[in-house]
């Protein structure tokens, strides 16, 4: 599969041939490459496979011959790993138990970082996390991990009991217990996946709107609209830089929240 095969569906969807301009829609994120229906090989899964291969190759290549005086690649890997290990895992989970979660957090962070950045790197330019299935899968991993470590450490009864604040007047508990359980079991994973999905999806829609809109105005518009189209391209360029920032931030936030949830599950009675 050539890189252009990955890049073409957008252009096909975007060329406003006949019948005016079509604004980008959520359907544009569904791009089957081979086959169709439920078992189609879609573009995000190909991007995800590429990212996994890329990360595996990079990490192996830079750590196989690790030396005391690091090469440039080894320095990058070490800096990223140190960042996740120290400022995410250790600061949030605490120095006693953080070490066993570092591999999981580093995996999450690197997968998200590469996949998110693929959203603006040509010729791929597709945010994998703009398809809700991918954030849900990652969230499922985090969900299972933090509930499992919580139950394993405190036992089921104490774990559920620890979620509910102590020392409130009796009747308040009728309100608090369902709310707290709802937060822990439904709202937290829901927001975790929707936050990532929403940011990637909305950011990409915005870029799509400015680029396809600019293209349409430049090609089909009158002279005034052609200038507006040029302005739209400038906006798309600025937003692409902004989008890069958002993508870095979202990879960080997802890992940060995963660490926070694990820390909350491990925390002693509050």
């Amino acid at each position: 599969m050539s890189p252009t095969a990955l890049a073409t569906p957008f252009l096909a969807a975007a060329s406003g041939d006949g019948g005016g301009y079509h604004a980008p829609e959520p359907q544009e994120f569904y791009q089957p490459l081979i086959g169709h229906g439920d078992w189609a090989l879609t573009r995000p899964i190909v991007v995800m496979a590429i990212s996994v291969g890329l990360i595996a190759w990079f990490l192996l290549a830079t750590t196989k011959r690790a030396s005391v005086v690091p090469s440039r690649g080894q320095w990058v890997t070490e800096a990223l790993h140190t960042f996740v290990r120290n400022s995410l895992a250790r600061d949030i989970i605490g120095s006693k138990e953080f070490l066993r979660f570092v591999p999981a957090l580093f995996t999450l962070f690197s997968i998200l970082l590469v996949n998110n950045l693929f959203g603006i790197i040509p010729p791929i330019q597709f945010p994998t996390m703009g398809r809700i299935g991918f954030p849900i899968a990652l969230t499922l991993v985090v969900y299972v991990v933090y509930h499992t470590v919580g139950i394993r450490k405190k036992g089921f009864r104490n774990y559920i009991g620890g979620m509910i604040p102590k020392g409130l007047p009796g009747p308040i508990y009728i309100l608090i217990v369902p709310l707290e359980l709802l937060t822990q079991f439904i709202t937290q994973p829901l927001t975790l996946s929707l936050r990532l999905f929403g940011n990637m999806f909305a950011g990409h829609m915005l870029l799509l709107l400015f680029i396809t809109g600019g293209q349409y105005m430049v090609i089909h518009g009158s002279i005034g609209l052609k200038f507006a189209g040029a302005g739209s391209f400038v906006m798309a360029f600025v937003l692409m830089i902004f989008e890069g920032l958002i993508e870095l931030l979202q990879a960080y936030i997802f890992t940060l929240l995963a660490a926070t949830y694990i820390a909350a599950a491990l925390a002693d009675e509050h």
Partner: peptide, 8 residues
């Protein structure tokens, strides 16, 4: 860290 957590 706290600010970004609150932001999220």
């Amino acid at each position: 860290t706290i600010a970004i957590l609150g932001f999220a």
